[in-house]
């Protein structure tokens, strides 16, 4: 697979400018700027708890930022009235980090849900579309199962099928590879790539697996400390000169990215007298 260099910022489907967010007194984003060009697969990476899911929630209007501008397809999401926001969301597919399947509906009905709610399609077409998408994630045979009868990896794939069932213009994948075996992971990677190549769907891919990301994404944003720590093609980041990329892709515990969630001194927490050096 060949990846073109990031194009000259001609046409960004998603533009984030000066995004600042504070949750529970913790600064998640501090004047973050970011662009997702149309028709590209952009990966968002970063340490756990850095705010990747929060960023996706901002982009889809589930959470309002404290400051900043988020434009999706020309609409300013935080100020969009509810009806317009819903109209916009109809064109967005979202894969939840925890799948979030509707537990009272079968796999088939889960995938059919967005179709049934918004389009009056004949049952036969619904069936065909749903089975095609389930086939794409390798679960056509599981159509009759209920969500509680699925394994974690199967649930992720059903959620993926549901996110893409309406062929949206933008798909946000929050960790699509979690719980997938190498075979399924390969298939899903191919699927994401195919959706992008054949339908021109823009994708935002949040994932921790750098190898997988390197094979699918056109660009990578590394977010740490509330800011963009690095940005470029996967190859550029892998070569990475900065301390951030070195630590993150080398997987070292020590570096600018702390492994620990901010906390008191370890020894003090365990009840020992504070070390004084």
């Amino acid at each position: 697979m060949s990846h073109a260099n990031p194009p000259e910022r001609a046409d960004a489907l998603v533009e984030v400018r000066g995004l600042s967010t504070v949750l529970n007194g913790k600064t998640i984003f501090d004047r973050l700027d970011l662009d997702i060009p149309r028709g590209r697969i952009v990966a968002i990476m970063g340490p756990s708890g850095t705010g990747k899911t929060t960023l996706l929630r901002h982009i889809t209007g589930q959470l309002r930022p404290d400051a900043g501008e988020i434009r999706v397809d020309g609409h300013d999401v935080p100020t969009l009235p509810r009806d317009a926001l819903f109209a916009l969301r109809e064109k967005i597919g979202y894969l939840f980090q925890n799948s979030a399947l509707l537990t009272d509906y079968s796999v088939f009905e889960n995938v059919a849900f967005p179709l049934r709610q918004h389009l009056r399609l004949p049952e036969e077409i619904v069936r065909n579309v749903v089975l095609t998408k389930l086939q794409a994630v390798g679960l056509r045979g599981a159509a009759g199962l209920m969500p509680h009868e699925l394994s974690g990896g199967m649930a992720r794939r059903v959620a993926l099928a549901r996110a893409i069932v309406r062929d949206p213009m933008l798909i946000l994948y929050d960790e699509p590879f979690v719980g997938l075996d190498p075979i399924a992971l390969n298939q899903i990677l191919k699927l994401i790539r195919t959706l992008n190549d054949t339908l021109g769907i823009t994708s935002i891919l949040v994932a921790h697996e750098f190898d997988a990301v390197a094979r699918a994404a056109d660009e990578v944003y590394l977010i740490a400390g509330g800011k963009v720590a690095a940005h470029g093609t996967p190859a550029e980041l892998a070569r990475g000169e900065s301390a951030w990329t070195k630590q993150f892709f080398g997987g070292e515990a020590d570096g600018p990215v702390p492994f620990q969630y901010p906390a008191r001194d370890y020894a003090a927490d365990l009840g020992f007298p504070e070390r004084t050096r």
């Binding site: 889809t60 589930q62 509810r82 819903f86 109209a87 969301r89 109809e90 967005i92 979202y94 939840f96 925890n98 979030a100 399947l101 509707l102 537990t103 849900f113 967005p114 709610q117 918004h118 549901r162």
Partner: peptide, 22 residues
């Protein structure tokens, strides 16, 4: 409550289905 806890309400919102109405 369980729908809230398991993000099903959020999932509906993301599928442009208003949980208040549905």
């Amino acid at each position: 409550g369980l729908m809230r806890a398991t993000d099903q309400l959020a999932a509906m919102e993301m599928m442009a289905v208003d949980p208040l109405a549905y």
